[in-house]
């Protein structure tokens, strides 16, 4: 979650797709890729609620 707080995390989904492809999970369901995609989208949705604003109304 720390990583997804500071980065977008799309590269994690890409790695998940490669790993699923290496283990031939696409012949059934690429559970690893779909899980990582879900985690990235979820982190993207909750990120605005975790941000803070300073006295100059600047997002940090």
């Amino acid at each position: 979650m720390f990583y997804l707080y500071y980065f977008q995390g799309y590269e994690l989904v890409l790695i998940g797709i490669l790993i699923d492809g290496y283990y031939q999970s696409f012949y059934e369901w690429p559970v690893f890729s779909l899980s990582l995609l879900g985690v990235v989208i979820l982190a993207d949705l909750i990120k605005p609620y975790l941000l803070m604003y300073n006295g100059h109304h600047e997002m940090v």
Binding site: L14, F26, L34
Partner: peptide, 24 residues
């Protein structure tokens, strides 16, 4: 980028051999 990734996953579901070769 999200659409690219989702499209890649859907492409992999239709053509699993392609993703497997690229991954290999």
């Amino acid at each position: 980028w999200l659409l690219i990734l989702i499209g890649t996953i859907i492409l992999g579901l239709f053509f699993p051999w392609l993703i497997s070769r690229v991954s290999a």
